[in-house]
Amino acid sequence: MMVSLVLAMVSGAAPLLAKAGMPPAGASPARADKPMLWIWRGFRRAGLDLPTFRRHLATRFIPATVKTPGRFGLQACLVVMPLNGGEQGLPDEISLVAYRSSQLYRQMNATPEGKAYQDSQWELFDRSASLSLVPQAFTGRLPTAWARGLAYDLLGKPVDWSSGHTVFYLGRRHPHLPPDTFMARLHRHLAEVRRTLPAWGLDGYLTLLTGDYHYAFLHWPAPGAHDRAMASPVGLALRQDAAEFLEDLMWSGAQRYDGWIEPGECIIVPLPPPPSPRPPKAP
């Protein structure tokens, strides 16, 4: 679901790939106090039927996420089960994952329970196909290579993805558009989103792009801010622009995990609060 072993945060404009057990290529060591964040695309293991996959994910793997990473600095985990997941290049599961620091993440991976948790993901996911991308700063420039996808942090602001109101969007390229044209239009659209929507309350926007799909996590202070923005002239103009090159597949507000997840849902995994600082010893 969420645990490609991203052992470093990265900087720079080029999107960097993180696969299980490996840091992104070319990544520099992370500062211990710097948060880690990535977007995961999980493809179901061959031979695992969808009902079993969904049951295992909802009743075993997500609770294990609360139990193990939840004790080692996992700050936010949002899980999406797309409609028609596993078809036409769509993953079966998407996650937004944020840790408080790389140091806590490494500490978890060094424990027996952390290693067991990491290994357990391959009971669900195809190791060769599933991958994570660390969002990079959005410059508006269209890269020349994006075969495995691009991930951007559109606004570059610190966001608590476990609170406020998050909406997940999934759109598919119109079939009449070539992938190159689709990607160019999408970059222009994202530049306009960054220019206009923060004035209407948007304070976080993480996106993952491929030649066929646009995945996005949008963060707002509250549901009302999102609704007002989407009904505004700015929001309506952005939706009209997107309709020229995107087919909407999913637009879902994140809900608290209640023990289950259905296709078409985005859930927020409830995590324990961080431990209180240890009081200093008396002199």
Score class of each variant (00 low, 15 high):
V3S: 10
V6R: 13
A8M: 01
G12E: 11
A13L: 01
A14S: 15
K19I: 14
P23Y: 10
S28G: 15
S28D: 15
S28W: 12
R31A: 03
K34C: 04
R41K: 05
R41N: 08
G42D: 08
G42H: 03
G42Q: 01
H56S: 11
L57H: 07
R60D: 11
P63A: 02
T65Y: 06
F72M: 07
P82R: 13
L83E: 09
G85Y: 04
E93Q: 06
V97L: 07
A98S: 04
R100D: 05
R106W: 13
N109M: 12
A110T: 14
A110G: 04
K115M: 00
Q118Y: 11
S128P: 07
L131Q: 09
S132M: 08
R141I: 07
L142D: 13
T144D: 15
G149E: 15
A151I: 01
L154Y: 10
G156K: 03
D160S: 02
W161H: 06
G164N: 13
R173D: 03
H174M: 00
H174E: 08
M183D: 13
A184N: 12
H187R: 03
H189S: 06
L190M: 10
L197W: 03
L197F: 02
Y205A: 03
Y213L: 02
H219F: 00
H219K: 05
H219P: 00
W220N: 00
A229C: 08
L238R: 08
L238M: 06
L238D: 08
R239Q: 08
E244N: 09
D258C: 06
I261P: 01
P273A: 01
R278L: 14
